[in-house]
Amino acid sequence: MIPPVLAVVSRSTKKKHSEFEAEALPHMDVLYNFALRTTGNEDDARDLLQETYLKAYRFWDKYEKGTNIRAWLFRIMKNSYINRYRKETKEPDKVDYDEIENFYNSIRAESTDPNDLQQKLFGNLLGDEVTKALESLPDDFRTVVILSDIEGLTYEEIAEFVECPIGTVRSRLHRGRKLLQAKLYEYAKKQGIVDGD
């Protein structure tokens, strides 16, 4: 059990604390989900979430009231993740467009009924396989796919979150999804859902 903390209250910090909690804590689930999909395990997600909130609390004075608090928290989490994990993880995979092109060609060659084939392709995949495929994407691509397809953010919001132009968001999303298709296709081949070439 977590030992109790006797919170000795001073009026000068009470306001800051309650403001912070009221503004920042409602976004915990969004941040946790992002941390979980980014780190790939609950322990690291928990640590990353804790670090994010502690940093945000420490730098609460720097937060510009009225601006997008979720984007601010997200950027803190993203930077914490980069500082904490990037040294430990391998460099992002190079995007192999030849492989993706081959993938499209093989799909087209097998595609007598596109709708049926596509459903057959990805419809039988398990959640774990899709999660693994997503986690294996390079950071920048994975981030925009999560924010768009899981969190349902608009391009404008994502651009604010990741601090890059909307055009870059579009491009990363498109390339991320292409990579994801290739990964999912590999899983489908391994499982025998589709015939490999």
């Binding site: 689930d29 928990r46 499209y104 799909i107 596509q118 990805f122 899709v130 899981i150 999804r177």
Partner: peptide
Amino acid sequence: DEFELERLCKQVVQRKIKRVGTPPAT
């Protein structure tokens, strides 16, 4: 084909990866 595949890819992510709540201990 490319449009359908990309759309399907998005649907697969949305359907298979469920948002979870923060665990109470966390």
